[in-house]
Design a protein around this nucleic acid. Structure first.
Lengths: 200, 200, 200, 200
DNA sequence: TATGAATGAGCATTCATTCAT
DNA sequence: TATGAATGAATGCTCATTCAT
């Protein structure tokens, strides 16, 4: 019963854990009630349907993803390369929590055809892309940066598939190594721009 | 002797369609009965549990994937580049059938944590990797070919995630274009070997 | 607060009737729903499984047996012989309700090998034995009183078997007559004690 | 498939074991098929319904009971007391086979109200009574012998109830001891008759 | 004679949801 | 606001039985 804000966060966190572990359809309101300590009817007091509850959870998951992963990209106190690697490492760590993989992809593949959460999920994926592309913008032009960011996210999602069915974290580790090395291999264009602007 | 109401292949195909459309947990035996024209109890005459039925469906899906996608890699009547592109195009076409994406990834992300189909799924992904790496072997050494094949499959799976929540086939199209171009950009080592062997 | 559709005692009584009439395995939750006026799902709100429901019913049956049959043994307002006969008559009456016989024996023979209700059933039989032996204590020493009580209960259970397959209440009637006569034939040791104590 | 006589006996024996272990309602045709090695449809080839199959099994059980237990009473090569004890010992041994108790009583209490096997069961119980009373005829007049035989059978059935829920064979052992001792305690009237007839 | 396939009804149990208090 | 009680529909699975071959 989220009377205070802190309790609401805790409530959504627990729901997120259950949905992430069991999937959307395989999670019952009963499961959520048990996980949160509320009565089943209590859930309906706050969220009129399971679907709307899930939307709140997706929203909550995006907020957490933003502050834990995406925020790294904006942390200008670190050099770009370090920010890039740190982001990927955090994605990886997230996927390995109880071997749940990527929450967004889990729900995407399970419910994509139902068109039920697609709007939120696509927004999440696009925000992620924009965030990561802000790092690639140091090395590529705008359009290429976005494309490369999306490509790396795709690769990550695929790595998660291999990880999830094998339980082997090496797939994720290799992904981070590979992507980071590739990132470092591209020379910064910021530098060039700098020189140019100074030169003139 | 067996006076079946439906051919086994046809039966499994219909089940595959339903599972692919609705996912494992969200598909009921009733759904499968309706789709195949059998009674619920009739399903149980042939498959003792839903899980074992799904295993047969996974097996069937792998066979079809083998003959429709993986077989292309072995078709030496075509040059390597054409085989590569043809394979990816067929993967893409498969994903776009009723916007179902990749059957293996769908089930992987939905049931991965249950460890229920992981063995079969991992075998499928590895066979796919081996098949695709046989094309990369034309450009890379053994180890690198495998790694590059796996990387491309991962990218494909990620592209499918984007496709599934957006409905936009461009994600898949771009993937095919990108991967094919990258493949063509790498010079064949067959050529070099040839020269070398002749040179000596 | 609890806005129940049916009183708990009434609910358990109806379930007891059904189980007693049809046996454990041959009674479905549907049968119990119909008999109690609840929906099937409603039953599960109160009892998580059929087995646990049955345990509650067994408990309820024991309580009723206690207050209807066993209580007679403790009613010191009646002479021992009358209490003895009254107890047996009440057992008999119970067995003849809808020709159901002895609930405990019914369930015992049906589910005994499953070891599912044995603990409760044995407790019931032992309590019954203790209760009846308190009357025999007027005629026998402790150990013999218990043995004789158990023997008479056994004879009763056998009489019920004959009654149940024949529908002929004479078997039960004869049992009551026989046991009562035998009881009366044994001289009270209370009496002897009396004389002795006076004699000294 | 009882092609030969010996196979039919074996078939019925296996069915008897299953019914005795699981009860009538809790035994499925599937269970019987598995136990006998026949196909389910094969069972229906020989017995049109489960109920009729059970009737054959009851018949078979009675035959076996006759030759294993009741036959002892007719074995005039042994003195009456030994025949009596031997009969009870065999009953007891039968009840302890896999702790199944008395087949007739099991089915009686489970299905008695259904009136479905009562005719056969009552015949069995009466034949048993007659057989045992032939031994009591050595000690009692006709009517008393029958009554006493019935009473001892009842006591046995009750002992089986205690045995089945406790698993403790002492209940059966005590029954045999008690009944045998009581039998021996009654003087033979054969002797008296002899003297009388000779005397005149 | 024997059997694999099939079925309609039913099993214990769970679902998302509603409602009176 | 919170909850115990209730529900109609559905879940995976089993039942006794039938039928074509």
């Amino acid at each position: 019963m989220p009377v205070q804000k802190i309790e609401k966060v805790d409530f959504l966190l627990r729901c997120w854990e259950v949905f992430n572990r069991q999937g959307y359809h395989n999670t019952s309101m009963q499961d959520l009630a048990k996980a949160t300590g509320l009565q089943k009817a209590g859930l309906y007091h706050h969220y009129p349907t399971k679907q709307l509850l899930m939307e709140s959870v997706l929203d909550f998951a995006m907020q957490r993803f933003r502050s834990y992963v995406l925020a790294v990209a904006a942390d200008t106190s670190l050099p770009v390369e370090q920010r890039f690697e740190k982001m990927l490492r955090r994605q990886r760590r997230l996927a390995m929590l109880q071997r749940q993989g990527c929450f967004f992809a889990n729900i995407a593949l399970e419910t994509g055809r139902d068109e039920i959460f697609n709007k939120m999920l696509l927004l999440a994926m696009e925000e992620w892309t924009v965030s990561l592309s802000s790092l690639y913008a140091d090395r590529f032009e705008e359009a290429d940066a976005v494309m490369e960011a999306r490509r790396v996210i795709m690769e990550y999602e695929g790595a998660v598939v291999f990880y999830k069915i094998s339980g082997n974290p090496q797939y994720l580790e290799d992904f981070v190594t590979r992507a980071t090395k590739a990132f470092r291999a591209v020379p910064s264009i910021q530098h060039i721009h700098h020189h140019t602007s100074i030169g003139i």
